[in-house]
Design a protein around this nucleic acid. Sequence first.
RNA 1: GCCCGGGUGGUGUAGCGGCCUAUCAUUGAGCCCUGUCGAGGCUCGGACUCGGGUUCAAAUCCCGACCUGGGCGCCA
Length: 439
Amino acid sequence: MQSPIRNRKYATEITPDNDGETVCIAGWVHEKRDLGGVFFLIVRDLSGFAQVTLNRKKTEKDLFARVKKVPRESVVAIEGKVKSESKAPNGYEIIPERMEVLSEASQVLPLDTTEKVGAELDTRLDARFMDLRIERTKQIFIIRSRVLKAIREFLDERGFIEINTPKIVSAATEGGTALFPISYFEREAFLNQSPQLYKQMLMASGFDRVYEIAPIFRAEEHDTTKHLNEATSVDIEVAFVSDKEVMAILEELIAFVYAKVRGYPGLAKLNLNLEVPKIPFRRITYEEAIEAVSEAGEEIEWGEDLGTSAERTLGAMIGELYFITDWPCAIKPFYAQPADAEAKSKDRDTCNAFDLMHPRVELASGSQRVHSYELLKRNIESKGLSADSFEFYLDTFRFGMPPHAGWGLGIDRLLMSMLEIENIREVVLFPRDRRRLAP
RNA sequence: GCCCGGGUGGUGUAGCGGCCUAUCAUUGAGCCCUGUCGAGGCUCGGACUCGGGUUCAAAUCCCGACCUGGGCGCCA
């Protein structure tokens, strides 16, 4: 055929009603079943599978021989007649007239795309391009795309402006996590750990509501199923509101995303009963959280951060998405707004910060922000950081900065928790961790 | 970074001092078979991570390196 992919049809676009029509399909050779007199070639494309049937007596000899020997996972284009056939998988089969091998696959394959024999995650990630040909893996990333679309749809409808902030930054860090140094510049430069400072600076622009969906970089030497050195976060920042309003946006967004994913037919491939969480989510204070964990036998002092096992204990007790609020200032960043004197319980220094928790993993954290220049400067210094290196950030607070609040949500974690996937690497195309820089 | 597991054909595994010329499945090559959809049957090919040590004897025990799974810390 002169143009092997002329009028290409997807496998699921063809139905028994097309009986007698000539069609062209293109895709990968998924399986071959040789029964002697009859030969089945299963071609896989984005939509699904099509069965190509050859009869030794009826099919032209050369074509029969070529189809028989095309290696699995080769890319082929096949032109033939649709035949309605109740014995065929989709109710139809294709009687081929021509086959073009567009790319012949080498043998043997690094993975089994028919899923007869499983493969470990590490093996799958080494051959990710082929792993993505497996139905389940493919659906995870289609769902990921839909999640991202849903987030944009939700935020766009609410008047948010999508922004892009720099990923190459100077020394200033929010503290906590370590940064990746970059050697190109003639002074210190790093990959950004989050868009935090930049999205806050934009609050002084009058944009009022901004969001960014972008990579974040953490140079942590952690080695777990829920950490990566490069992750994707959705960050929002909203002017003239407090933590309460952005918490409401967050829970509505989560419910919206779940609802969108729930309606997606490909979800069936993941064998999952996805329920849209009810809003509002439960809210417990930090104080209630440490009390509950302590009662369960794991003593936590006020002011200590919640460790992995504490998170799990809480998750098991609550069993659904929940917020932890009113954190001690000491374990939240300098930009978290301290609670008003009258709102404080027992004279403890708490701030208007919150974490959104899934029973298995922390998903998001946010807060009302400090918008007073003097307080922010004091906070930075009291955390042992240098106000000088934050000048570019602090300056924006001197010329008219509205009160504001925001949060950052880990997309990868949202996806893994929603889809009940154990390892975060499964929901990232090419995950980056301590050991993996390729592919 | 710390603490526990584990590295056996392409893939997933069994074996854990001599019975290993290493099991099984799948894949690959070939043959038989006209309705498969995890097709079936037969034949063949293909592996003990690397280096050192213990022992008459090492896939098997010990040490080191590398890779890897999990837990913790830290974090989103």
